[in-house]
Design a protein around this nucleic acid. Structure first.
Lengths: 117, 117
DNA sequence: TTGACACGTAACCATTCGATTACATATAAT
DNA sequence: ATTATATGTAATCGAATGGTTACGTGTCAA
């Protein structure tokens, strides 16, 4: 499970949505997961395949049903990469705060855009 | 700057490498950044365009040079998404630890594979 | 055993991606 | 003024992505 696969798997909002759905209710079947997705069953299957390749889900076949289980562990590699940047954007936020404070000390500020959510 | 763009921008290891390079030395020119990249200058330009579209870098033209600056702020949206999963994988790690402890209490463990780094 | 249900496989198609070569433009240096 | 440097634009190309339809297989229920 290369971390590159994890990044790519998570880059698609449909796949993130699938993970979110499993985080909410683990062990869902394919058809259950399809309910959340604006595409054909085959489309969902392909996305699930990619998630499984990345190690983000595991599956178990029970009768004619295929159950899907979330495995968040590989997300750790994404988190690890981000770690180096958390410090950076905190520094910038601090500097921005300083700037705001200094600006407020002198004049009336108009409006301050925050980072997007 | 949609968060989807940020996820996609960061999904490519070349682009992550560019960001890492800027994190180490901010304000590099295109040709400087090319040194790190196993592709043509145009290839690098395109990657930088994608990063700029995602808001992850800003640029300033100085004479014939174009300087590139890291803006880690949009990474916050990735971090925010991950937050929900950090709890999950900690829970699993805890359970794994429990399992290991219980196993060690009974028998001699052979080898324990950790999550990949 | 027949049919409905859940999933799998194959073939296909349009679009995007990742990279290239070739050429153009703007600025710095001599 | 000429040349070298730094970047920009356009056209092209193969491969990967993201989705589809059509058909096949296995399992449960009546």
């Amino acid at each position: 499970m290369e971390s590159e696969q994890v990044f790519k798997a998570v880059a698609d909002h449909h796949r993130r949505h699938l993970l979110d759905s499993l985080a909410q209710a683990d062990g869902q079947t394919l058809t259950q997961l399809c309910a959340y997705m604006p595409m054909s069953r085959i489309g969902v299957m392909k996305h699930l395949d990619i998630l499984e390749q990345a190690g983000l889900i595991t599956t178990r076949k029970v009768g004619r049903k295929k159950l899907h289980f979330l495995n968040p562990a590989p997300l750790h590699s994404v988190d690890a990469w981000l770690t180096g940047y958390r410090r950076l954007w905190n520094e910038r936020m601090d500097r921005l705060e300083d700037l705001i404070n200094r600006t407020q000390a002198n004049e009336q500020p108009k409006e301050q855009n925050d980072a997007e959510t």
